[in-house]
Structure formats: C-alpha cells, structure tokens
C-alpha cells in the first residue's frame, strides 16, 4: 500500500502533517522515534519575538476549542532545527512576514537551516495590531518579493476561511507561490456573563475543531474550481475519514490540528486506518484517490 506523496520534488512518507501551533519536540516522547507524520509544520515564526497574549488563552467549546495564543514565538532568529535533526519527516516552517524589510532575515535563517518548504501564515486571528486582511491586493508586492528572495524554497500561503475568493487565489498564483493551505482558525468571541466581560483579552479568538471539516471541504471545492495549485487541507481532522474526504476533494497533504491535544496517538491511528482502507478498497496508491470527486 503506498501512502507516499510526492510534491514539488519532496517525498512525504504519508499525507499527514502537523498543523502549525500544535506540535513540539516534546511530542516525540509519545512516538518513540517513529514519527507518524509525513511532515511537520512548526508554530509560526515572526520577525521579532512575540510573548503572546495576556489573559485567558484557551477554552473548550462543543466539538472544538478557542485559542488566543497570539503567535507566541522566540522570533525567526532563534529557529532551532537541531531538535528535529534525526526526523526523516519533511520540516516545514510557518512564517508570518509583515514587511519587505523583514524578508532578508527570514531568508538567512531558512537557508542556514536548509529549509525546503515554508507556509506563509496570512491568517492568524490572534494579533490585535494586525487584523487579518481579507483583501490581499495590498500585499501583492510583498508576496512577489518573498517569492523572489526565497528562491528554491517551496511556499504555501495559509488562508483563513474568509480569505478564500477568486481575487486572492489569483494573487497567490501570480506571485508564483507553490500552493495554498486552507484553513486557519475561524475568528470568534466568547463572553463571560458573570463578569460581563469578553472571555479573551483580545476579544476575538480563533475557533478550531471537528465542525470545520464540512467548511474546509466546501472551500477546497471552490478553490479547486479556480486553480490547480496543490493544497494542504487543514481544519477539524479527527480521523482517517476526514483525511480521505480532503484527499477526494483534491488535497495533496492533510494537516492535523487541535484533535491531537486529546489524542497524541491520533496520527498513528490515522496512518494505520488509511492503509486498511486502501487494502479494503483494493487501491494500491493513495494518490489515485486525490480529487476523485472533482472529475
């Protein structure tokens, strides 16, 4: 049974990735050297260190959760890949770049660490100063510059639900990016009725969880009607069935996000169940299933 996915010269041992913001080297304890992912996407790095948001950062809601982490990260300067040295999985760095001046440092660090693929996070809802831009026209120049500078590195742009429209997809395509990740968390608000306050200090937080799958499938369906760019699907994956659904709808790779918090062994189970599914269906290669519902 082949679960291998080839994408732009990279070879993923299976279509499973960690979603950004979920995984750290501490997870390796659970897997005892045998990582169940074809690739890992690290938490988003910004130009400068970000301490993260004050106040509440987490809340469980029915079928999911809200987070207001605020891109806590040490800054791209401190990217330390030595923790992942021994991993065979493809290492993807999530980055958020706000300004043309910032690109040089990202370039330097990414090249030094021999990074082959990045995910440009366009869609974190958890930063107060920088609202998610739904109109990417203003970013065109920045994107072209990023593309030019990060020559040789595969770039995917990570969208939120509300960023998916024809104009934005065309901008990503014409900037020369290699693919799209869909999607980031959905902005939402929670209220503490006893304190009569917003639950999150930033008021708006990001919602993730299993109910995102139908939304992700619909957005993927829409995107695939506009572009042939490869897709990393993300949102709500809780079992192998969700992974298959995204693949049927044309995704190359599928990211697993907040469902891993409850069950760190989830990717192990999904990998096993994908193989069983292929065997049951007498399909030799998972790549045969990609986009079968788009034909």
């Amino acid at each position: 049974m082949n679960l291998n996915i080839k994408l732009k010269g990279l070879n993923f041992k299976n279509p499973l990735l960690t979603a950004s913001g979920i995984f750290s080297d501490d997870h390796l304890d659970f897997y005892q050297k045998k990582l169940p992912y074809g690739g890992i996407v690290l938490k988003t790095f910004t130009y400068e260190e970000r301490l993260g948001n004050i106040g509440n950062r987490l809340l469980e809601i029915p079928c999911g959760m809200m987070n207001s982490i605020g891109l806590a990260n040490p800054g791209i300067k401190y990217l330390d890949m030595s923790l992942f040295d021994k991993l065979k999985a493809i290492k993807i760095i999530s980055i958020a770049i706000n300004d043309i001046e910032e690109i040089a440092l990202f370039k330097k660090v990414l090249l030094k660490n021999k990074i082959k693929m990045v995910e440009l996070n366009l869609s974190c809802p958890n930063i107060k100063e920088k609202k998610v831009t739904n109109d990417l026209r203003k970013k065109k120049e920045l994107f072209c510059e990023i593309r030019r500078e990060l020559k040789g590195i595969i770039i995917f742009a990570k969208f939120s639900y509300s960023q998916v429209n024809k104009s934005n997809i065309k901008i990503i395509e014409s900037a020369g990016f290699d693919g799209i990740t869909i999607m980031n968390t959905i902005p939402g608000i929670e209220i503490d009725i006893d304190k009569k306050e917003f639950y999150f200090n930033n008021k708006v937080a990001g919602i993730s969880g299993s109910f995102l799958v139908p939304m992700g499938l619909e957005r993927l369906f829409y995107i695939k009607n506009i572009t042939d760019l490869p897709i990393m699907a993300c949102g709500g994956v809780k079992n192998y069935k969700d992974v298959l659904k995204y693949i049927f709808m044309g995704a190359h790779l599928v990211q697993i996000g907040s469902a891993v918090f409850n069950d760190p062994m989830l990717p192990v189970k999904i990998e096993r169940n994908l193989s069983s599914y292929l065997r049951r269906e007498k399909i030799n290669d998972i790549n045969e299933l990609r986009g079968i519902l788009l034909k």
Binding site: I22, S24, D26, N56, R57, E60, A72
Partner: peptide
C-alpha cells in the same frame, strides 16, 4: 492551575 490543551508546552495555552 490553568486551562490546558497539549499539556506538554507545545500550544502555549497555559501561560
């Protein structure tokens, strides 16, 4: 005590 998600320092939720 804080609300937690990952429990291992990965998600940065229990600050």
């Amino acid at each position: 005590e804080r609300r937690m998600a990952c429990g291992i320092g990965a998600c940065k939720g229990c600050s």
